[in-house]
Amino acid sequence: MMQVEVWFEQIEFLAIASIVIILAYLALEHRNIVYAALFFGFMASFVAGIFLLLEAPFIAGMQIAVYTGGISALIIFAVLLIPRAQDSSLEAFASPRRRRIGLMLSGSVGLLSGGLALVFPWYDTFAPDMPPLELNLELLSQWLWSEHVIYVQMAALILLVSIVGAIAILKMDKAERLIPIQGEFGIESVEEPIDDVATIEEPSEEVGDE
């Protein structure tokens, strides 16, 4: 009875982990970048399944809400705003030699961190299996909102700074258009008229004919 449950759980973990690894590989290697963003969203939702296996339900929900809902939407929007990035015929891929070197380096990164973590002496102090289920949302909420509520305010400040920074970076391009001129009283700056459309020459439709 118990043995069957243990096997079932391990099979579940192996299935979810293999799906996560395959989706992560596809998100990096798929030639169409819209599909790559889509596979990244799927990978984030399957990582939420890993968090459910770890019995951390709130982390799973937040993973789905922020990664699957927010960050993959950001990536898809950025792809949408840059039509050049959607066209996979314009994308340059790395040469096989560079790819091999990258594979070796990343493999050594994984092996080194894995070796350090699994051979390290503190690994023996951990229990071989999971402690009994005693956590729930109530205790986590009490930890975060009642005892360490300053962290929440710091997160709010970081989000505020990200909004203000995004607006400031988008406005910075307009500020750089102030060109200095030699005026009557020294160097002045005069605002150039904003005409995105008018200053750009029309694209030449004909390509090099034979």
């Binding site: 809400a65 922020v66 809902g69 927010g70 960050i71 939407a73 950001l74 929007f77 950025a78 705003l81 997160a155 989000l159 990200s162 909004i163 995004a166 607006i167 988008l170």
Partner: peptide
């Protein structure tokens, strides 16, 4: 893109 950033902030 700014609207998307606002969406992510409200999400968090």
């Amino acid at each position: 893109l700014v609207y998307t950033i606002l969406f992510v902030v409200v999400d968090v």
